[in-house]
């Protein structure tokens, strides 16, 4: 994958459609009810318009979502392809450990388990069942990024395309959340999301090169906001 433009993915039409469906707002993960601390920033006045939301989203994608979830999507996708289920369990545990704010940890697990339930029905395949068995045997917790990497591997979608789709899905979902929370004009918010296309691609490229020992999240203030979210007086989002 190239950072900005050029080398597009050559995906079969069916795989491309599957990615559209997995990252669509209508796929039942419940992502639309999670703000990952954004709601705290909105209530505290730190995010109040399209430019401040764009700054928040760029920081979230580049320094939190990509180097944890994005990297894990690629690692799990590769591990599933080679049949290394010990690695899948290990990366799933790594994701749980890296999510320090309780609401963020819970969000990854509830959206992940919802995605797995839907995927077993919509995209049935042996690897998806193998991951579900890991969950039943308590060898995995069901983090969203691990489920996503497993499903894309079962659909023979390459790690790089999987990471890009996952991060775009996260960006799109958070844009929808911000449109309701701030609130933002729908067209202006979508214009900002489009302007962040290169940012999403660069974050995906960086994430795809990380090893297990390099996964990290450096968005300190967003973590604090996610912790403070638990005690906001009134809340529209779960996280």
């Amino acid at each position: 994958m190239s950072p900005s433009g050029g080398g597009a993915f050559a995906l079969p039409d069916d795989a491309l459609q599957a990615l559209f469906q997995l990252t669509s707002g209508s796929f039942p993960t419940g992502a639309f009810s999670h703000s990952y601390g954004l709601e705290t920033f909105v209530q505290e006045g730190l995010v109040h318009d399209v430019p401040t939301f764009g700054d928040w989203l760029a920081a979230h994608l580049t320094h939190a979502a990509a180097p944890t979830d994005g990297a894990a999507v690629a690692l799990v996708n590769r591990a599933v392809t080679t049949g290394d289920w010990d690695a899948v369990a290990r990366i799933d545990a790594l994701l749980t450990a890296l999510k320090l704010a309780p609401e963020i940890r819970a969000a990854s697990l509830t959206t992940g388990r919802a995605a797995l339930r839907a995927a077993r029905d919509v995209f049935p395949a042996p690897p998806v069942e193998s991951y579900a068995a890991l969950l039943d045997e308590r060898h995995a917790r069901g983090n969203l990024a691990a489920v996503f990497g497993c499903v894309t591997a079962s659909l023979k979608i390459a790690p790089s395309a999987s990471v890009l789709a996952f991060l775009w899905g996260a960006a799109s979902s958070l844009t929808g959340v911000a449109t309701r929370l701030v609130p933002l004009g729908a067209v202006a918010a979508q214009r900002r999301l489009r302007e962040l296309s290169a940012c999403v691609r660069d974050a995906a490229t960086a994430a795809d090169s990380l090893g297990e020992h390099e996964l990290h999240a450096s968005t300190v203030a967003q973590d604090i906001a996610a912790l403070r979210h638990a005690r906001l007086y009134s809340r529209l989002c779960i996280s």
């Binding site: 920033f41 730190l46 401040t52 920081a59 979230h60 320094h63 968005t219 203030a221």
Partner: peptide, 11 residues
């Protein structure tokens, strides 16, 4: 790769 003293990182 990007200043840490901005919104979301160290504010």
């Amino acid at each position: 790769d990007g200043a840490p003293d901005r919104l979301g990182l160290w504010n």
